[in-house]
């Protein structure tokens, strides 16, 4: 039994310590967003955020996550209260089949957390590990740019409210 913090909540996990995080998220915690794509760390569809950094959950064993904070796409927002990155992907209609999209969004989110105003080249370089087969790349790039603007506006209005 191990305690794993996911989306701000502690969970008691009964799984072998070598179990990749992906299966804990999907199988034990019933979370959908992180996807099995390759199990080899080659495609990025399983990407989640661990302590602020994008991590490939299919090759990260449970044992390495003791005391860490895991964030999945579910932890960012909901359909009725979407996070800026989610709103941006909806507004840009940045999906076809969408299977890769959760991983794309989490990697983009990690980038925006450490670099709120990335250049186009920085976004492309960041997303290099993630594969999309439908060819939605142009929309994904536009959505990440839009998310950066939305987060900037959200920060500005939050600062205004708090009198900063």
């Amino acid at each position: 039994m191990m305690t794993l913090k996911v989306n701000g909540q502690d969970n008691q996990i009964d799984a072998d310590p070598d179990t990749p995080l992906l299966y804990v998220l999907r199988d034990d915690l019933k979370l959908n967003a992180a996807k099995f794509g390759c199990g080899l760390g080659q495609c990025g569809s399983c990407t989640v955020i661990v302590d602020g950094k994008a991590v490939l959950s299919c090759v990260t064993p449970l044992v390495l996550l003791k005391g860490k904070q895991v964030t999945t796409l579910e932890g960012l927002g909901t359909v009725s209260a979407p996070a800026p990155i989610q709103r941006a992907f909806m507004e840009e209609q940045a999906a076809q089949c969408g299977y890769c999209i959760a991983g794309m969004m989490m990697r983009a989110q990690a980038l925006l957390l450490r670099n709120p105003k990335p250049t186009d080249a920085e976004i492309r370089a960041e997303l290099q590990p993630n594969l999309c087969r439908c060819g939605t790349h142009m929309r994904i790039l536009r959505a990440v740019h839009r998310a950066a603007r939305l987060m900037d506006t959200a920060d500005a209005s939050a600062n205004a409210r708090s009198g900063q």
């Binding site: 959908n32 967003a33 996807k35 999945t72 927002g77 909901t78 909806m90 209609q93 969408g98 999209i101």
Partner: peptide, 21 residues
């Protein structure tokens, strides 16, 4: 018209046969 399937796909909703439980 915005696609009806996209909101679930960008929020971790049950969107695929892979997500069935």
């Amino acid at each position: 018209v915005p696609r009806v399937d996209i909101p679930a796909k960008v929020t971790g909703g049950e969107a695929y046969v892979q997500d069935m439980r």
